[in-house]
Design a protein around this nucleic acid. Structure first.
Lengths: 216, 216
DNA sequence: AGATGAACCTAACGTTTGTTTGACAGATGG
DNA sequence: CCATCTGTCAAACAAACGTTAGGTTCATCT
């Protein structure tokens, strides 16, 4: 039986140093998963990047699959957080402003918050089946946010979708996500410029002209 | 020294049956590379799909890398062929018609000409470095066709690109290529509808209204 | 001082990878 | 009818894989 009424917690919080190493491992793993793919990345390669031997990794994580799963979950968390932040800061604005903010937020998740979100886009399709099944529901939650956003704007007549909102969402998210294969935020174009370009190409179809004023 | 002046060629043309088996192997390999990824596909898995044992594959193909390379090359050939066909059939048409035809042609390459082109999109980024280096120049040729097309339409003022033609091309090709991760041509939407949706979202920005007439 | 336990190492586990080998069956050709 | 060529197989190869086990170091706590 577990001792109760202990003054201090029986399960002490993880040491900050240990958690820091764990973060470091996941950072390097995510970076390698992103550039080399999941199957193309070996534990020895990850260990070398951290400055350890392969076996030592297992003192911080349960398995290679577990690493990927945690990276994918964190990637979605970043996206969801950015989405809500964009929604709050443009709650009263017009259609184009709101859409532009969300596009910028999604691209920010990809390029400005470490390799977790980007790994999500590239490594997910070929992740082990078990991992994928556990991630899909979480991922669905984020996609639902986008569907809701686009459907709302379309229903209000503020943007014009094609045959279906889902198809529109998939095309838009495809053009955003595929940018990680060619866009370099340290290059001669900024993330802002990329967001502007995608926003422009996507919602230039908006019946309403580019609006800057609020619509309370 | 090679014997010359032989009546028959020293290198007899490959038997048609043998070439057929080879095609079959490449077909199954491409399908597996597409669905499971290159590193996630084993030679034994490919052999099983063809109805052989792993070792037998090597009587038809030099190596796993060689399989991938040939698949990638053929994928580009399909795309280039479709591009030129679209260019010929709409040489005198207006901007939107020409662009729509090329978008439809590219999507046709992805979904209607076997797994070679689609494999090219998904497997290329994580192909072995040696293979990738040999493919890049060929791939550049196809991308140049698109750049030329978009630049021509933009220079004539028929479409409006963003800050750069390259960025516009990458965004457009990204939205087309990423559709292989979610679009199913056997589903309730046809490739034609997908092409229409992408064309609509992309070139609704065209200053000129949707034109149907030719501009000789 | 002695004990503790986390962090890391080396070494090896069993499995799977891409590839090679040698033998065997059937067709082909002189 | 014999010799040759083709395609296939079982078997084995070395290398690399993810993972486990056991030993060593070292700061911390009693």
């Amino acid at each position: 039986m577990a001792r109760a009424l202990d003054i201090r917690s029986d399960l002490p919080p993880p040491r900050p140093a240990a958690e820091l190493v764990r973060q470091h491992i996941l950072d390097e793993a995510a970076h390698l998963f992103l550039t080399e793919g999941y199957n193309g990345t070996t534990l020895r390669r990850i260990a070398a990047a951290v400055g350890m031997k392969a076996g030592s990794i297992y003192h911080h994580v349960a398995s290679k699959d577990d690493m990927l799963e945690e990276i994918l979950v964190r990637g979605i968390e970043v996206m969801v957080h950015s989405f809500h932040h964009a929604a709050e800061t443009t709650s009263g604005a017009g259609a184009r402003t709101r859409l532009a903010a969300h596009i910028r937020a999604h691209l920010g998740s990809l390029f400005e918050h470490g390799p977790y979100t980007a790994t999500h886009v590239t490594a997910f399709p070929y992740a082990p089946a078990g991992v994928r099944e556990r991630i899909v529901p979480i991922r669905d939650g984020y996609e639902a946010l986008w569907t809701e956003l686009l459907a709302g704007l379309a229903a209000a007549g503020e943007i014009e979708c094609g045959p279906s909102v889902q198809m529109t969402r998939l095309i838009l998210m495809g053009s955003m996500n595929s940018s990680i294969e060619w866009f370099d935020p340290r290059g001669d174009r900024s993330v802002d410029q990329l967001a502007d370009a995608i926003t422009w190409q996507f919602c230039s179809a908006v019946g309403a002209a580019p609006d800057e004023g609020d619509t309370p």
